[in-house]
Design a protein around this nucleic acid. Sequence first.
DNA 1: TGTAGGTGACTGACCGGTCAATCGAACCGA
DNA 2: TCGGTTCGATTGACCGGTCAGTCACCTACA
Lengths: 217, 217
Amino acid sequence: MAPESRPVRARAAAPDKRRMILDAAVTVFARQGFHHCRVSDVADEARVAYGLVYHYFDSKEQILNELFLERWQIMLDAIAEIDRRQEVSVRDKLYLVASFIIDSYRHEPDLMKVIIVEVTRAANSFGRLHLAKIREAYAGIATIVEGARSDGSFKSDISSEFAAMCFYGAIEQVLTAWIFDLLPRSDGEYEHAKGLVVDTICGGLEAPAADAPALSG
Amino acid sequence: MAPESRPVRARAAAPDKRRMILDAAVTVFARQGFHHCRVSDVADEARVAYGLVYHYFDSKEQILNELFLERWQIMLDAIAEIDRRQEVSVRDKLYLVASFIIDSYRHEPDLMKVIIVEVTRAANSFGRLHLAKIREAYAGIATIVEGARSDGSFKSDISSEFAAMCFYGAIEQVLTAWIFDLLPRSDGEYEHAKGLVVDTICGGLEAPAADAPALSG
DNA sequence: TGTAGGTGACTGACCGGTCAATCGAACCGA
DNA sequence: TCGGTTCGATTGACCGGTCAGTCACCTACA
């Protein structure tokens, strides 16, 4: 990631083969799944010799680890950054979090598919390995919710950890629906989903009592 | 399943080897993951010769398919049955659904782990294969929600399909947390979670406006 | 001419699936 | 009662394909 860790020699025309391998891996892992693809598929997709993959990476696993850690850290930073903005209401903070995750999928669907399918939901392999990082995301969202719980705007009988889990679970399920082609994919759908998730989790499904005047716009 | 489909010769002491293999597969798949275990692990766990696995099943995949289909159908039937009960409110119906799923996990954690990790969340392999069955579950929950939307007790601007997705997603995320050992497992926790999921999804996280008189409850 | 970058044939382990052989309960005919 | 026959259940050694990872070699730039 850090530029100084890569050789500076960068000839203008020299493509970053390492990056090409990572990008190819995203495509291949997304298309065939981590377990159903061969390292040669990745090399072919990257238009690179088989052996070069092992020049840059220790193993097939390491490629996935790197893809996950790189992207996940960006999300953790984004969540922390959102929480820091004091002028924003908690509901809007959650909207921003949903927005960030859904936009991540919009712009890099293959990468998000790989991360969700092969890591965050893979309880026996990469999920366990990266459990600490995954928890950090829950914790970040929980911190946001906790802000609203302590000032009374959110119910106090639902713990912030549990709320964070429901919130993240709902988003991941919607992403999964896109991954499985169960929901249509369009800019409008993405925008719509952001609002719906937040409305559902914050406002709930139940309609306000009909015989009472609406208390808030 | 049906007794008449198995040979009637059933000596009293004859163990149903086929069943033993299925049970062993649940244990092994849950412990090591479908991809990281060998057929010989299943045979060893069942205390049965390697070849016998192929006497009863065509392939390793077929074992998982059978485990999934058997259990999933029970859940689909349960959801349909819950929806049929006309004296129960929609919120209580959702509670019963959450209850059923969580109790399934409570009583057969390994089987549920395998179904969730290896099937419902495996977008590149078994998930795609069983997509139709998985959709049926969403659809069943959506049907329940639709009942409340049409009588005005649930908001009309959140589609029942989307609501079902959030609801199921929240539950699966909680199950995943148990699977990953992120949440403590006890009868109390299970019971508590049932109520919390329904409260969160139906009632939302936001507290009723404090300056207004409580309208219900 | 040293070295980082790049190549791809090869190897060896692993594992899903096969199959020829054996077991043993039930039935049969004498 | 007893050898014989049948056939599904059971065994586990073995086969063959697959594929992650290795390595000897090449190339081009500084």
